[in-house]
């Protein structure tokens, strides 16, 4: 070791590579920006170098132009709206059904034995493979797309939420019992409030998966939506539109993720005190 720890002046490079060390807020922002801008610059450079055909890789500014054109002439807002609607509907139905089931599985051992292995089994069945079945059973209307998103998220959600419920410390529950709480009160006043932050995090993670299944769902004879637009663009070799669609979905995902994080900080302030 060249530098001794008692040298007094901390060497920044050394400080960076401390296991689970800390860095300043400015350093963090600079690095985060670098992480976002470097791939963009590489993309720009590659697209303008002439090495790659435009059919394979359009330049960033072409993609931006395409997004504007899509917005002005091709009903981008309509595509966004229908996609957001499908994601939100499938996700919301999943969440509403998963929460009570998870509460039961996470609280009562017999119900865990009854439902968890089954759920575990079903969640490994690929949601995509259900498409023919869903078309057969549900048809090709909106409900079919929502059903695919539901199948893709519901079973994961149940298992993760049940785990969130199980993680409520036993001492919190027992303390309430020795204060005379009934079953209903335990659920309402201890288990749910205690698990809420973890449950919101689970919703945030599964929301990401719901967006993934959107594109899959819009494979099902859709004629609108961001996922459908990407598939149609591929047919016409509009690579810039494919890029635009993918980037927009990423952007929406990021936006939703950040809103969940914001909500988490807003609703559960005690977790952020130090």
């Amino acid at each position: 070791m060249a530098a001794q720890c008692d040298s007094g002046i901390p060497n920044p490079r050394q400080r960076w590579w401390v296991i689970r060390g800390q860095i300043g807020r400015r350093e963090y922002l600079v690095l985060a920006l670098l992480g976002l801008l470097a791939p963009l610059a590489a993309w720009w450079g590659l697209a303008h170098s002439g090495w790659v055909d435009k059919v394979f890789m359009p330049a960033p500014e072409e993609v931006v132009t395409r997004i504007y054109g899509w917005f002005a002439e091709d009903d981008l807002l309509g595509d966004i709206w229908i996609s957001v609607y499908r994601v939100t509907a499938g996700f919301a139905i999943s969440a509403v059904l998963a929460l009570p089931l998870a509460l039961l599985i996470g609280t009562y051992r017999p119900l865990q034995a009854l439902f968890e292995p089954l759920t575990d089994f079903i969640r490994y069945m690929p949601a995509v493979a259900f498409i023919p079945l869903v078309m057969l059973w549900v048809g090709i209307e909106e409900s079919a797309k929502i059903a695919i998103i539901f199948i893709g998220t519901f079973f994961q959600m149940v298992l993760m939420m049940a785990e969130d419920i199980r993680r409520v410390p036993m001492a919190q529950i027992e303390a309430a019992q020795t204060m005379g709480a009934t079953r209903g009160e335990l659920t309402r006043l201890v288990i749910l409030p205690s698990a809420k932050p973890a449950l919101l995090d689970t919703l945030r993670v599964t929301m990401g998966w719901a967006w993934t299944y959107l594109v899959v769902a819009e494979l099902v004879a859709a004629n609108s939506g961001l996922g459908f637009a990407i598939l149609k663009a591929q047919r016409f070799l509009q690579t810039d539109k494919i890029f635009a669609g993918i980037l927009l979905i990423g952007l929406f995902g990021l936006l939703m993720d950040q809103s969940f994080r914001w909500l988490h900080r807003k609703r559960f302030p005690w977790l952020y005190f130090k």
Binding site: P169, A171, Q172, E174, T178, M179, E185, S194, W270
Partner: peptide, 30 residues
């Protein structure tokens, strides 16, 4: 368990989403 036999645990029994005062008053919400 019953309210006439209160228990104090080694840890993890406080409700982190309630303030000190609200924790102490918890039994009043039952």
């Amino acid at each position: 368990p019953g309210a006439e036999r209160a228990m104090v645990f080694q840890h993890y029994s406080l409700y982190p989403w309630l303030t000190v005062r609200e924790n102490i008053r918890f039994c009043r919400s039952l």
